[in-house]
Amino acid sequence: MANRNVEVGFTDSVTVQVTDKMVQQFAELSGDRNPIHMDDAYAAKTRFGRRIAHGMISGALISAALVKTIGGGGVYLGQSLKFVNPVFIDDVITITIKITGVRKEKGIATVETNVTKANGDVVVKGEAVIMVGADMEHA
């Protein structure tokens, strides 16, 4: 995907529903089978009252949103994540990216990466630093 959006101020978003299937697949991939994510009876007794999605699912969805909104071919150099509120199974979340800095001579962009629920609750606050892909540099 070619990019024409590597400019300070560019903002876009992607909306995704976090499903039980995603949680099961993430547990299989990562080996993280914490009962807060996997066991309804266990999770019902926690402060959340029900199962929550792995926080890193939001992190992975941020990665996907960067490709969908900015373009492919880039590489992560860093990503900060602050988990503010839980994501429950079947929550609809929106990943919003905003380019806050571009160093064209280095081919590097800084991107604000935030995730919110449909009700407006912020669930993740973060910032990514990416090396812009070759297809983005000449867009």
Rank of each mutant, 00 (worst) to 15 (best):
R47N: 00
D90E: 08
E105N: 10
L77C: 01
D32G: 00
A43H: 13
M56R: 07
I36M: 02
G74Q: 11
S63Q: 08
I70V: 13
V92W: 08
F48Y: 15
I130G: 00
I89G: 03
S30T: 03
D135L: 14
P86E: 12
A109F: 12
V18E: 01
G55V: 10
F26I: 00
K104P: 02
H138T: 01
A43V: 13
H54E: 11
A60Y: 04
D135F: 06
G73S: 04
D90W: 05
K45Y: 01
S58E: 01
V84T: 12
L61C: 10
V122F: 08
N119S: 09
V84R: 14
V75R: 15
K21F: 05
R4G: 02
D91K: 12
S13K: 05
D20T: 11
E137A: 08
E127C: 06
I70K: 08
A128G: 12
Y42C: 03
V14I: 12
Q24I: 15
T69G: 15
D121S: 04
V18Y: 09
V129H: 07
H138I: 00
V18S: 03
M22C: 01
I108H: 05
D121P: 00
I57A: 02
A2F: 15
G73E: 06
D39I: 12
E105A: 10
H138W: 01
